[in-house]
Amino acid sequence: MTDKAGSHLRRAALYVGAILIGVSVGGYSALAMGGLLPGSRGLDSAGVDVNGWHSDFAIGSSSANPYVRARVARSGLLALSRSEAVYFTTASDEDGQPLREQCDYRIFGAGMPAQWWSITLYDGESRLPMNDDHALSIDASRLNGNSWSALISARRPGNGLWVSSRNAGRFDVTLRLYIPDKNLFSNPQDVLNPPRIERLGCPRGAA
């Protein structure tokens, strides 16, 4: 092989290497930023933040940016646009600690700026946790009055409202607001009083 041919070969290898590195970096960064990597939590880091509850009002709409679209496709496929429903998600308690199956929590709430609302617990894969406790959510139609509280725990309490976290591992909680008050979009901090999640203790593991 001549020196010239060898030089061309090295140069071609350099370009091939550059393309491979570029594709890897571009692909990985897209997966990471779009919440598409296994184990990544998609919806609890979106744009609007009200006391640790996150939402993006562009969900479901064609105006959503590519990162929101990717996150929603993975973690909230077939979500409605904001005129019909808004979704707020949190993965941490009021102290900012991650929600875990090993701990017990009490969730406190009051009236919501919507015609109907619900609160549902999902595991780290955005699925209903694999248990047969029949305690996956609470919703407005089951509650009397404005103020309410419920236990989030892997064990069934003696009485009161309960959302089971059994087999949920690290989990999050989604608040659905159906037919939301229009003022929510212009002033979410004042219009929404999201539920408060207090950690009671971690009887099944270290805090």
Partner: peptide
């Protein structure tokens, strides 16, 4: 310069392509 620019174009192009196609793929 050439390889660095090539790497940049490949990274940006792949980033955009993955994000664009992800919802369609998942759906």
């Amino acid at each position: 310069l050439g390889p660095l620019l090539t790497m940049l174009v490949a990274a940006v192009g792949t980033h955009a392509l993955v994000l664009h196609e992800a919802p369609r793929f998942i759906m």
